[in-house]
């Protein structure tokens, strides 16, 4: 169904600006599907994932620009490094619970952001740096339309992988960690390893999308790693619906499109965004998609 939507949607796109917004929405959707494995399924919060996203972006930018590596290699190396970093910090951090975990992940995100902002000699500092096009085997991805199809395929692939994972022994173990850690432990689930695993996986997702984002945009600034961007990612997951692959996807799309609509009421944008965040969480604490689905179920059940 997702494939159909992605194929049909461009019929309504009258110019390349639409493609641009759609690509960004899909970028966010991929990150959120990964992040949702951590937050929605395994029940562990992270307020620092924009840091991993930014590391992927800067990793690709630096490796292609200064070392002349091909983009695909730069992307994979960055993702590996981010994965290792997530593994190293993940072990001690994921022993923490609730607010302490929120604090620790938030700290990691902020530290990454500050490093990117400060090491101006390498990263260009707050002024940002430019990045070349993405090319593979002599084929260059250029223009919003081409990016749209490439990212669309990647999104479908991501959703497929995520759906596979959730309905598998590993996925069930992850969800069990959310349900009851001790309950999972006594039937043989090594909960700390699984938490680290999903933390690493979601960080790698963020890093790879960061890399692609850098190539697509051609220019990056440290603010893609800011606390606010981490918050946005979490909001997308929670708004759309925790523990729902399509919920995360829908959340990402809505929250990417929202500023486009709010641009009309420019100066009220922040207030409206804040109000939407509060309102959804108060009235639909399970997120949009699960709430709608259960409303439908109730209706059918009633008849």
């Amino acid at each position: 169904m997702l494939a159909v939507v992605i194929t049909v949607a461009p019929l309504g796109f009258s110019n390349s600006y639409y493609y641009d917004v759609a690509v960004n929405a899909m970028f966010n959707a991929i990150v959120c599907v990964g992040l949702n494995l951590l937050i929605g399924y395994a029940g562990q919060i992270s307020l620092g994932h924009a840091g991993f996203f930014a590391l992927g972006a800067y990793g690709s930018a630096l490796l292609t620009a200064s070392w002349g590596l091909p983009p695909i290699a730069a992307m994979l190396i960055s993702a590996t490094v981010v994965g290792l970093l997530a593994f190293v910090v993940g072990r001690p951090i994921l022993k923490l619970k609730g607010h302490y975990l929120a604090m620790a992940t938030l700290g990691i995100g902020i530290i990454i952001h500050i490093v990117l902002k400060t090491e101006a000699k390498i990263t260009g500092g707050p002024d940002g740096m430019s990045v070349d096009n993405f090319s593979l085997l002599g084929f260059t991805v250029m223009g919003d339309r081409m990016w749209y199809w490439v990212v669309g395929i990647l999104l479908i692939l991501t959703v497929w992988l995520a759906l596979n994972l959730i309905d598998s022994p590993v996925g069930r173990a992850l969800r069990a960690v959310h349900g009851s850690e001790v309950g999972a432990e006594v039937v043989g689930v090594d909960t700390s390893s699984y938490k680290v695993l999903v933390f690493v996986v979601s960080a790698v997702f963020a890093s790879m999308v960061g890399s692609l984002f850098a190539h697509k945009n051609g220019f990056i600034t440290p603010d893609i790693g800011s606390f606010m961007h981490s918050v946005e990612l979490v909001v997308m997951v929670v708004l759309g619906g925790m523990a729902s692959v399509f919920g995360a996807l829908i959340g990402a799309v809505i929250l990417t499109l929202l500023p486009q609509f709010l641009a009309v009421v420019e100066q009220y944008e922040a207030m409206i965004l804040g109000a939407i965040m509060m309102g959804t969480m108060i009235f639909l604490p399970k997120g949009l998609l699960p709430s709608i689905v259960s409303a439908f179920k109730r209706r059918e059940g009633g008849q």
Binding site: V170, A173, R175, A176, G179, A184, V186, V187
Partner: peptide, 22 residues
């Protein structure tokens, strides 16, 4: 210590974790 976020049968399937390809 039930996994309330899962289906009943999935709770039991988690129990079988050790005997599956992980």
């Amino acid at each position: 210590q039930i996994f309330f976020n899962m289906k009943a049968i999935e709770n039991v399937m988690v129990g079988h974790h050790l005997h599956l390809d992980r």
